[in-house]
Structures are given as structure tokens and as C-alpha cells.
Amino acid sequence: MEQILNVEGLCRDYGKGAVTHAVDHVDFSVEKGEFVGIMGPSGSGKTTLLNCISTIDTPTAGHIWVEGRDITGLKQKELSRFRRERLGFVFQDCNLLDTLTAFENIALALTIRKTPPQKVESLVKETARLLEITDCLDKYPYQMSGGQQQRTAAARAIVTRPALILADEPTGALDSKAARLLLERFEAMNELCEATILMVTHDAFTASYCHRILFLRDGAVFAQLERGDQNRRDFFRRIIGVVSELGGDQSDVL
């Protein structure tokens, strides 16, 4: 299988004197078409790790390769272009533009990449069908439910067909029904489009949709679970077992 992401010896330190090792020599890789989750207690380094991979933060040491390219060595202009063209983002806050319709919010990602206008409409509609939001395309964010807004954000992330989709607590602001719908659409993105997804979550139910889970503790990889042929219910139970071992119930694992 083709490796999309390879993280080697990644460190991110903060402070002087009494240094905090937010990410401490982390190594892992993600293959094309994988759906990988990252979990761990509050302060374990999950968000810092994701921020380094997303190029929002700069590692203290180590390397991050995406599609074989070492992004830790890119200059700012190259980094901006790489982020725009090869990464897709879905955050807890949808970050949709209130003055644009769902169609326009999704199309914006293509417009920035100077996609020919004749291709924009077909790509937006195709992606909207996948995310089941075709009935929302003419609506503004304030006219949509939270779940519809988040699926619109997911459509915006995938419409450019990025190498890697980075999701940070995408279900955090959703009720259980909306969260399930979003996760089912993530599964569809993964299976039908071979989207490679790396998702930070505090929620074991959300994590149970992944193929594999990395658990962090004190900035380092503590454990790893692979779903394999297990059904989601059994995988959920295994996740809860590791969460308990990390020291706390599910609500503690942020």
C-alpha cells in the first residue's frame, strides 16, 4: 500500500528551562485509504500532533512526510500552497462563511485552486451527493442544522480530493443523531473516494468508526488498536478498555 503520511521522531517542546514535551518522539504512518483515529487524555499531545501535521504548528524536531515529501523543510510560500492543495480540514467549528451558500462555501476551495468554472459545479454537486446535502446547496449556514453545516464543511474538505483529510473533534458540537450521520458520511468518503482520514476525538463511539486508533499519553504513543474484521460494537468495547487503562472514563479522555 502507498504511504500517505509518515511521522518520524516528531517532537514539539514548549517553554524554556522547564520544558514541556507536548509531543515526544512520535513515530507512525498512515497508508492511502486508511481512517485513523487519535485519542488520549487531556494534555496528551493529540491536538499539538495534529497541528504539526497540518502545518499550523512547527515541530521542534523530527520529520513529517506527506506523499513522500518532507513538509518540515518547506518554506512559508511552499507550505501555504501545500496546505491549500494537498490537505483538507474539518474542525469542531465548521468555519463556514455566513455570507455564502453551502454551494459557494464548497466551491470556494475549488475557486482558490483556479479550477475551471465548468468543472466547479459538477464537482460540488457530486461531493454534495456523497455527503447527502444536495437539498442544502442553496441555503446559508444559519438556515442549516449543525449536522448539515458540518457535512458541508466535510464536503469543502474533500471536494479538492486532497491527499489527507485532518479532522479535529468533528462531532464535538453535534447531538448523537447528527454525529452518527456525519460519521456514516466519513465512512462513505473513505470507502467510495478512498479518502485518507486522520481524526482526533475524545469520544469512543466516534473512534469506533476508524480502522485504527493511536492512543497518546504524555506526548508519546501509549497503545495502538486495529479494528481488523471486528464489528464496530466489539471495537468500541476494546477502545473503552484502553481508555480505562489510560486512567479515566470516556468523559475524561479529551
Rank of each mutant, 00 (worst) to 15 (best):
E191V: 10
A173W: 01
E121K: 15
E184R: 04
L131Q: 07
T111N: 13
P170M: 08
S122K: 14
K114Q: 13
E121Y: 01
P162A: 10
I165Y: 03
P141C: 11
E187T: 14
G147S: 11
Y140L: 10
A153R: 06
E187L: 13
L131F: 12
L164K: 11
T127Y: 08
K119H: 14
E126K: 15
A154E: 01
G146A: 13
P116Q: 04
L181E: 14
A173V: 07
M144S: 07
E187V: 09
V120A: 05
F186A: 09
A195V: 05
R129I: 03
I165P: 01
L183Y: 02
F186Q: 06
Q118H: 12
E121W: 00
Q143S: 04
Y142W: 11
A188E: 13
T115V: 15
N190P: 07
E126T: 13
A167M: 14
P117C: 02
F186N: 10
M144P: 03
L130I: 15
F186G: 11
E194A: 14
R185Y: 00
R161N: 14
L181K: 14
K114P: 00
D175E: 08
S122L: 05
Y140D: 02
L123C: 01
R161W: 00
T160V: 12
P170T: 10
L137T: 03
K177P: 00
A179G: 14
K114C: 08
A157G: 01
C193T: 03
L130Y: 06
P141D: 10
A153W: 04
L183F: 04
Q150K: 12
L123E: 13
L164S: 11
L123T: 02
Y142T: 11
L192G: 00
E126Q: 15
Y140G: 03
D138T: 08
Q143H: 02
G147D: 04
I112V: 15
E187Y: 00
E169Q: 10
I133V: 09
A128Y: 12
R180A: 13
L131V: 14
Q148T: 09
L130A: 06
T134V: 13
S122V: 12
I158K: 08
D135P: 02
A179H: 08
I197L: 15
S176Q: 15
D135F: 01
R151S: 09
V159K: 07
T152Q: 03
I133D: 01
Y140S: 00
L181Y: 05
T171C: 12
I112H: 04
L183Q: 12
S145L: 11
L192F: 03
Y142F: 13
A188Y: 04
Y140E: 01
A188H: 11
L166N: 02
A154I: 02
C193S: 02
